[in-house]
């Protein structure tokens, strides 16, 4: 897959512990792990299911972050809130 296609032969085709690995990968992607770079490098180099899972999960996070349409905030909302705060002061 991708540019790493040529290295995929050296990866295991079955993951030893999908639950543990995937949970770890997802924590790394969510920024919950310190020193994650080394762990990640090793996992992705050794295990094909981990490699694929990581890239799919990463793609999903990326599109959510960059492509989800944002709702424009109504211009009067902030003023409306300030007015109500004035009233209860």
């Amino acid at each position: 897959m991708d540019m790493n296609e040529e290295t995929s032969q050296s990866r295991k085709l079955k993951c030893d512990d999908t639950s543990k690995c995937f949970q770890l990968l997802e924590s790394i992607l969510d920024g919950e792990m310190d020193n994650s770079k080394e762990v990640l490098k090793e996992k992705l180099a050794k295990c094909q299911p981990c490699f694929e899972h990581f890239h799919l999960e990463q793609a999903i996070r990326d599109v959510l972050k960059t492509k989800c349409t944002k709702q424009e905030v109504p211009t009067e909302l902030a003023d409306c809130i300030r007015q109500k705060i004035q009233d209860i002061k």
Partner: peptide, 11 residues
């Protein structure tokens, strides 16, 4: 369960 069952591709 953290099974890898998806056939969805990152691309």
């Amino acid at each position: 369960d953290y099974q890898s069952t998806t056939d969805l591709r990152a691309e």
